[in-house]
């Protein structure tokens, strides 16, 4: 798993590639928690290069989302595809989170 972060106005755009599994999920959570610690409140998670996510990854996402909610922040997603899209669908995460087709669409709404 690789994470690249950049800032677009008030939004932290997080590009995550590779696999978020039980081994890498804690790193993902830690990375985003650090940004929250720095005062960031709005996150767009770009998943066009994410090949795989397991329940450990969803658990990290949910944990971060719960923290953000208490700070009046939010996390949205874009460009889900293949197995990642399927996992979001089966888990119901596709309904509880806002998912955009493109980064551009997401940034317009954030």
């Amino acid at each position: 798993m690789e994470i690249n972060k950049r800032k677009e106005k008030d939004v932290v755009v997080v590009s995550v590639s590779g696999r978020i599994d039980a081994v890498t999920a804690p790193d993902f959570e830690k990375n985003l928690s650090e940004s929250i610690g720095d005062g960031e409140k709005t996150f767009l998670i770009k998943m066009n290069q994410l090949e795989y996510i397991s329940s450990a990854g969803l658990r990290s996402i949910l944990a971060i989302a719960k923290v953000l909610k208490t700070r009046e922040g939010k996390m949205v997603f874009s460009e889900l595809h293949g197995p990642v899209k399927d996992v979001f669908k089966i888990s119901g995460f596709g309904s509880i989170f806002t998912i955009y087709d493109t980064e551009e669409d997401a940034l317009k709404q954030c």
Partner: peptide, 18 residues
């Protein structure tokens, strides 16, 4: 319960469900 929202949703149980 996969219909719950972020606040109510529990962490865990999803793996076996998959």
């Amino acid at each position: 319960d996969i219909s719950l929202n972020i606040d109510e949703r529990h962490i865990g149980g999803l793996g076996i469900y998959f």
